[in-house]
């Protein structure tokens, strides 16, 4: 489904990603963790080309990512993304946020798009907010709308870039619940998060990154019980220790 091989990425002089190899099969859930500045966000932003890589190959759903704009738009339509800061469109209602891409990118008839949108709002448990503007919702509600907005495109893959980091603690659970439900339905997911409970529950594979490299990958049971590298051990002790 997603294949990165030998990917390197520089921001100016600074090498953000070094020789990244990663393969995510259909239906798999990958959780990416690591200290801040380790390149986790950059890596998942490469998958829908919000950032461009310089060397190496990235193939998503059989299409290689190049400068070809049409191919990029096609992949973006297949890959849903949820951001740390929600990025809902503040000038549109919740319903309009959800209908926008299906109507304009997929050419779905309005009525059908609205039905799908309402269905998704039920799934993320806020159908009663359909007519409100994003600014009127709580952070947790906004993030659930953002998940529904991504799902409205019926994506084959969902990327989550620290979806709960900007939330107040009491709202984290409502977002994670939606994500767990999504995982149980068989969605292919790549999630950058520090929520280790979530990782334990749903991940097929933990990817630990540090300083632009993938240091260690493994099943959650192995990774949490017996990390193979010192860096992973140190990281785990820091985030689980408190």
């Amino acid at each position: 489904m997603i294949e990165l091989s030998g990917v390197n990425k520089w921001f100016g002089e600074f090498q953000a990603l070094k020789n990244i190899d990663l393969a995510v099969a259909r239906g798999e859930k990958f959780v990416v963790c690591g200290p801040s500045g380790s390149g986790k966000s950059t890596m998942i932003r490469l998958i829908n080309r919000l950032e461009a890589h310089q060397t190496g190959r990235i193939v998503v759903d059989g299409i290689e990512l190049t400068d070809d704009v049409k191919a990029i738009e096609k992949i973006r339509a297949e890959v849903g993304m949820v951001f740390q800061s929600f990025n809902l469109f503040p000038h549109l209602t919740v319903l309009e946020n959800l209908m926008l891409a299906p109507v304009w990118v997929r050419r779905t008839p309005k009525k059908e798009a609205e039905e799908l949108a309402m269905e998704l709002l039920v799934r993320v448990r806020i159908p009663e907010q359909a007519g409100k503007y994003p600014g009127q919702l709580s952070g947790g509600q906004q993030q659930r709308v953002a998940i529904a907005r991504a799902l409205a495109m019926r994506p084959k893959v969902m990327l989550f870039d620290e979806p709960t980091s900007a939330l107040d603690p009491e709202m984290i659970k409502e977002v994670l619940d939606v994500m767990v439900a999504l995982a149980q339905e068989g969605m292919t997911m790549v999630v950058v998060t520090h929520e280790m409970g979530f990782a334990r529950t749903v991940a097929d594979c933990i990817v630990f990154m540090d300083q632009g490299e993938i240091v260690e990958t493994g099943a959650p049971a192995d990774f949490f019980a017996a990390p193979k590298t010192d860096r992973a051990r140190l990281f785990l002790s820091q985030i689980l220790g408190h």
């Binding site: 704009v69 973006r76 339509a77 990025n87 809902l88 990118v105």
Partner: peptide, 29 residues
């Protein structure tokens, strides 16, 4: 904010659709 562009791009909107539907309505307001 940059996030608005990114969210629009991530949904597969082309440059002109993003500009017309997301960016200009907010910028002109």
């Amino acid at each position: 904010p940059r996030g608005q562009y990114e969210a629009a791009q991530a949904l597969g909107l082309s440059y002109w659709r993003m500009t017309w539907l997301i960016v200009l309505p907010q910028a002109l307001r």
